[in-house]
Write a protein that binds this DNA or RNA. Structure first.
Length: 640
RNA sequence: GCCACUGUAGCUCAGUCGGCAGAGCGGCUGAUUCGUAAUCAGCAGGUCGGGGGUUCAAGUCCCUCCAGUGGCUCCA
């Protein structure tokens, strides 16, 4: 029943409230659900986020936003960014805020300001704390463009944003307390009391997105929660994640090392080589199954080959280059040129297709020094790489097989991944039509796979669009691992051809693909994922046997030989340390199976098996344990 | 490559105002023969990241180079 001056508001549970036009959204929500109203930090009106204080003046659908909603969480982050901007402009007078969006992790705010010091940050932190305690309100004010221009006359960045806004678009500013005002669309939380759990993660310089002439900006990064308690929980999780850092775990477990003399070139230690060999074995089983052959081509090629492939023009700044006897060679950053030369080395028939050439060769990429990062960003790497030379009609079935391979492989490592479709970059090889066809094929396959994906326009390789696989490290930073690229440019540049059933010559399509990506990056991320507890099939030592006293040493050695014959990597720990000490060391070394042999076990032919991470032990027959362990290894089980 | 920060024993860290370089773990040696996350004792181990400067005197202050960390840019 409509009364003049009243509007109909539809709420999420289907209820309708008739309220006087102009009632604040927050007030309506409080009336609707007084019990939970304290959790509401903003609202959506017809799906659009808005402040609680904004009046509802026409019939609408109204819903609350809490910190649990992604949109609500983003509002908290963005409000905290304003709070940091307020604090920073107080601490460093003359600082010019630019923009401060929420991110997947938290928020940042970029400032046009002198480089910040740690003292600045301390003062910003205490200013933030004071604002939170004072519960300063956020207030919106709609202004005319001219008003906004005069308010921000001293800040060229804000003026630029204003100039970029569409002519008809309304402009709003937000006050934080009564002294700080920022150009912003909003919405915001009602007051700074909502930002109790605001934490500054760090600061850094960022290269301005606009013209190269503009000075570097200073970015302050942070994360915000409505309560101190939620922040403490987050910091606890973060600390645990830091303890899983592969750069700490790897050297500690004897897997790999980083040496000051050879930055960017990781060293695989004996334990790490066992892992690399297991990963290669795993990859080779797939090659065998899907009809690949393995090849090996040189680590360097003359400049002319890279000119032919296009690397010299498009990738040279990332290549190591050597001059030998006056001839210039490039250290290969990818395996594709070698694969192209093999295909071209003799006449090819359609009967040979798809020709699938795999190559696990070391590659060199001259990554900028500031980007090196443990195993996940290195200058020498090995990919589980292959190039598939296929006829046009075989592209889709081959691609389907690859996506299925990815699904199976990542399931074994229990890694969650997303796909990214990267399309034609500027300055790429070839014609637009070929790219578009390849891109739409890839997108069709991605939709079919059901795995979440996003599109990154212009991020493709210089020769092909690609599907990249992304996984996250323990701190949530995304890394690209595998990649599948659909390339019709490079075969053309190398003038590849095969004779078809029709007697005509045809140019094949090349699929460049890696499944796990590189051993280095993949293993770095995986080590963090499993927190150093490698699955039994990857563990450098799978079984360690502990005689309780010297009297059982011979029995322990005998059983160790037995297990070794079964293919289990087994060793005996018979040092003069106490059993608890030896067990502790094995736990720290993350050895999956610990087998204790004492007087009792020698007497009855049993073993006492302790599984990594589990308290206590269970008695098994020797044959029983051997069968269990070999089965777990054979099936590549994730846990012992 | 850019900005900020960090660098003391193999590892984690202490080292005050510029005044003799330390601890725990790990390593080695010896004793101990032990039942599922640390037995005891002794010993060795340092160009305080490298180089330069200031000073009677530098781990400590200044400059510079190297490496690392967090971001940016770039990319598996």
């Amino acid at each position: 029943m409509s009364t003049p001056g009243q509007v109909d508001v539809a709420l999420p549970d289907g209820q309708h409230l008739w309220v006087p036009a102009g009632t604040a959204a927050g007030e309506i929500l409080r009336r609707w659900n007084p019990k939970d109203a304290g959790k509401y930090l903003a609202a959506t009106v017809d799906g659009r986020p808005t402040d609680l204080e904004r009046p509802v003046d026409r019939p609408s659908k109204l819903a609350p936003l809490t910190f649990e909603d992604r949109a609500g969480r983003d509002i908290v982050q963005h409000s905290a960014a304003h709070l940091v901007a307020k604090a920073l402009t107080e601490v460093v007078p003359g600082a010019r805020p630019t923009h401060g969006p929420p991110t997947d992790e938290g928020f940042y705010y970029d400032f046009d300001v002198r480089p910040l010091t740690s003292e600045d940050l301390d003062r910003i932190r205490s200013s933030v704390r004071m604002s939170v305690e004072a519960r300063e309100p956020f207030h919106r004010k709609d202004v005319s463009r001219a008003e906004a221009e005069s308010m921000f006359a001293s800040n060229p960045h804000k003026l630029r944003y204003l100039a970029a806004a569409k002519p008809g678009e309304s402009v709003s500013v937000y006050y934080t307390g009564d002294r700080f005002v920022d150009l912003c669309r909003g919405p915001h939380v009602p007051d700074t009391g909502w930002l109790e759990g605001t934490y500054i993660l760090g600061h850094s310089a960022v290269i301005s997105e606009t013209s190269p002439g503009t000075p570097t900006l200073q970015r302050v990064r942070g994360v915000a929660f409505p309560t101190r308690h939620q922040l403490d929980e987050y910091l606890k999780l973060r600390k645990e994640a830091e303890a899983r850092d592969h750069r700490i775990l790897g050297p500690r477990l004897g897997l790999f090392a980083f040496l000051e003399e050879i930055p960017g070139f990781p060293v695989w230690l004996p334990n790490g080589m066992i892992v690399v060999h297991e990963l290669e074995q795993f990859a080779r089983e797939g090659l065998q199954r899907d009809g690949y052959v393995e090849v090996r081509t040189p680590l360097m090629f003359p400049q002319t080959v890279f000119e032919e492939s296009g690397h010299w023009e498009h990738y040279r700044e990332n290549m190591f280059v050597s001059t030998i006897e006056g001839r210039t060679f490039g250290w290969k950053p990818m395996n594709c040129p070698g694969a192209m030369l093999i295909f071209r080395s003799r006449a090819r028939s359609y009967r040979e297709l798809p020709l699938r050439l795999a190559e696990f060769a070391p590659l060199h990429r001259l990554e900028a020094s500031g980007t090196l990062h443990g195993l996940t960003r290195v200058r020498e790497l090995v990919q589980d790489d292959a190039h598939l030379f296929v006829a046009e009609e075989d592209v889709v079935p081959e691609m389907r097989k690859l996506l299925e391979w990815v699904r199976e492989a990542y399931a074994i490592f229990r890694l969650e991944y997303t796909y990214e479709l990267s399309t034609r970059p500027t300055g790429s090889l070839g014609d637009e039509e070929g790219w578009e066809r390849a891109e739409s094929t890839l997108e069709m396959l991605l939709k079919e796979s059901g795995v979440p994906y996003r599109v990154s326009p212009g991020e493709g390789a210089f020769y092909a669009p690609k599907i990249d696989i992304h996984v996250r490290d323990s701190l949530g930073r995304p890394w690209q691992t595998g990649t599948i690229q659909l390339d019709s440019q490079m075969p053309r540049r190398f003038r590849l051809e095969y004779q078809g059933a029709d007697g005509q010559m045809h140019t094949p399509i090349v699929i460049h693909r890696t499944i796990l990506g590189t051993w280095e990056r993949f293993f770095g991320v995986f080590l963090e994922h499993c927190a150093g507890c490698l699955p039994p099939w990857l563990a450098p030592v799978q079984v360690r046997i502990f005689p309780v006293t010297e009297a059982q040493a011979a029995a322990a050695q005998g059983y160790a030989h037995e297990l070794s014959r079964e293919g289990l990597r087994t060793e005996v720990s018979d040092t003069s340390e106490t059993l608890p000490k030896r067990i502790r060391s094995a736990e720290i070394e993350r050895i999956p199976y610990m087998v204790v042999i004492g007087e009792k076990e020698v007497a009855d032919g049993s073993v006492s098996v302790r599984t990594r991470g589990e308290k206590g032990a269970r008695s098994r027959s020797r044959a029983e344990f051997a069968a269990h362990a070999t089965e777990r290894v054979r099936t590549r089980a994730f846990e012992p």
